[in-house]
Design a protein around this nucleic acid. Structure first.
Length: 107
DNA sequence: GAAGTGACTCCTC
DNA sequence: CGAGGAGCCACTT
C-alpha cells in the first residue's frame, strides 16, 4: 500500500512503441502527439529519444514520425531514408515539408 | 541525486 | 520564411 503507481513507472518505450505501431500507412504523427497519446503530455523529446534508441531492424513505422512543422527532424542521411519511405506510402512533400492538416493522424 | 542531453515545441524578432 | 531563445519532460551518466 502507499504505492501510487505513476505513469512514469511504466516503460515509456513500450507505450510509445504501442502508439507508434498504430499509425496507419500513408499517415504521419508528430513527436508531441506521439508522446501525448502514449501518456506523456509535452514530452515530445522523449519520443525523439525513444526513436533514436530504436533498433534499425525494427518493424515499427518510425518514419511516420515528424516534427510539428511537418518537417523531418532526423539528420542526414537518415532524413533521406525517412522521406523516401514516406513518399513510398504516398505522402507528398511540398517545399520539403508535409501538409499536417492532411496527413496528421488523429484517432 | 544532481547535471547533462536530445530525431521537440512555441514564441518573438 | 528563417534564425534565436526560453520552456519542457523524461532519460542517461
Amino acid at each position: 500500500m502507499g504505492n501510487k503507481p505513476h505513469y512514469r513507472d511504466y516503460d515509456a518505450t513500450s507505450r510509445i512503441c504501442r502508439v507508434l505501431a498504430e499509425v496507419p500507412c500513408g499517415r504521419v504523427i508528430t513527436y508531441g502527439d506521439l508522446a501525448e497519446m502514449a501518456g506523456f503530455p509535452r514530452a515530445a523529446r522523449l519520443a525523439g529519444q525513444t526513436l533514436r534508441r530504436l533498433p534499425e531492424d525494427s518493424r515499427l513505422p518510425w518514419h511516420r514520425v515528424i516534427n510539428a512543422q511537418g518537417r523531418i527532424s532526423l539528420p542526414d542521411p537518415g532524413a533521406q531514408h525517412q522521406r523516401k519511405r514516406l513518399e513510398q506510402e504516398g505522402v507528398v512533400f511540398v517545399g520539403g515539408r508535409v501538409d499536417l492538416a492532411q496527413y496528421r493522424w488523429t484517432p
